[in-house]
Amino acid sequence: MSSPTWDPALYTAFGDHRSRPFYDLTGRIAAEAPRRVVDLGCGPGELTATLAERWPGALVEGLDSSEEMLDAARSRFAGRDRLSFRHGDILHWEPEDDVDVVVSNAALQWVPGHQGLMGRWLEQLAPGAWLAVQVPGNFSAPSHALMRELAESSQWDHRLRGVLRHTDPVSEPRAYLELLLDAGWDADVWETTYCQVLTGEDAVLTWVRGTGLRPVLDALSPAEAAQFEEQYNQLLYDAYPSAERDGVLTTVYPFRRIFCVGRKPERA
């Protein structure tokens, strides 16, 4: 499966909802004065920049495979001292000797076999280093299950076969915990379901359009994509009913996320 294309403006349209898990994740990192901090899958860079503010003495680097996202990040943060962004594939990234903190927020679900990558990083990172990862755990939620069912229908299967991954892009929390513990790391793993309140018409479709729907939209022509979205949106209306509250159309969208933070013990 090729990497999806990204729209930085659409991705950041739900900034508060997308940033909260990042802060919940990085709040568990207790590093005091890291030398180098790397954000794998940095997107448009706003959250990466907060790492530079938190650790002003560190070299902070964002890595992403989307040139659109990197263009947005470089434009916004041009000239920021000790903060940089570069193009790269997480699959081929390896930590340098001075990397003390690695963060990956809502990115590894796009990397098949990322658990093996994490295992390699656990070996390669220096004693005292931190690894903090957050991935969505909602692939069995109606928003994703309905998308897969529609893509597999007789109308769309010939165009979308193999485009969407199924229910195994991420592991369950226990598997990540055991991965860290088996490597000898101190580990903190948990999950949270955020009951997000989205506003406006077609709120769930707009949310998913910025992330999980990207591979489908990339695989179809504009006319086909519009038809798929119309059919998918009708399914979402039934799964996520909306209600008007104080004159505002609102939709509750539960979103489960999985977090793991680990620290490699110092050498004895």
Rank of each mutant, 00 (worst) to 15 (best):
F228T: 04
A219P: 13
A13T: 09
W6P: 01
K264V: 01
D186L: 08
R257C: 05
R267F: 06
Y232W: 12
Y176C: 09
A33F: 06
L122H: 00
V37K: 10
L160Q: 05
P173I: 01
R148Y: 02
L164E: 05
L181T: 13
L125M: 13
H114L: 05
L213A: 02
D186A: 09
V208G: 02
Q134D: 01
N138Q: 09
L63T: 03
D89H: 14
E178K: 02
G137E: 07
C42F: 03
P241N: 05
R214G: 04
C195D: 10
R86I: 04
D98Y: 04
D97K: 11
Y11K: 08
V38I: 15
L108W: 07
D24E: 15
A223C: 11
D7N: 11
E201P: 09
F255A: 10
Q196T: 15
L117K: 04
P241S: 04
A239G: 12
P4V: 06
Y232I: 07
A126W: 03
A52W: 00
D71C: 09
R161K: 15
P4Q: 06
R148Q: 04
D64Y: 06
E61C: 14
E53P: 03
A187C: 13
W130A: 01
M118K: 05
D186H: 05
Q124Y: 04
E244N: 09
R82H: 15
A219D: 07
G262K: 03
V133Q: 00
P222I: 12
R257Q: 10
Q234H: 13
L217D: 06
S171K: 12
N105Q: 08
R76A: 15
G212H: 02
M147P: 05
S143M: 03
Q109S: 10
V163L: 14
E53K: 12
A141V: 04
R209C: 06
I258W: 01
T167Q: 08
E266D: 11
R263C: 08
F255D: 02
P44D: 10
V38M: 15
P169Y: 06
E229L: 14
A33W: 11
T199L: 06
L59Q: 15
R35C: 13
S140I: 01
Y240A: 03
F228P: 05
G27M: 08
L150E: 08
D218Y: 11
P4G: 06
L108H: 04
V208S: 10
A226K: 14
G262I: 02
T5D: 05
S153R: 04
G200M: 10
G128V: 04
P95Q: 11
C260D: 00
L205W: 10
R54V: 09
A52R: 15
P254R: 05
G62S: 07
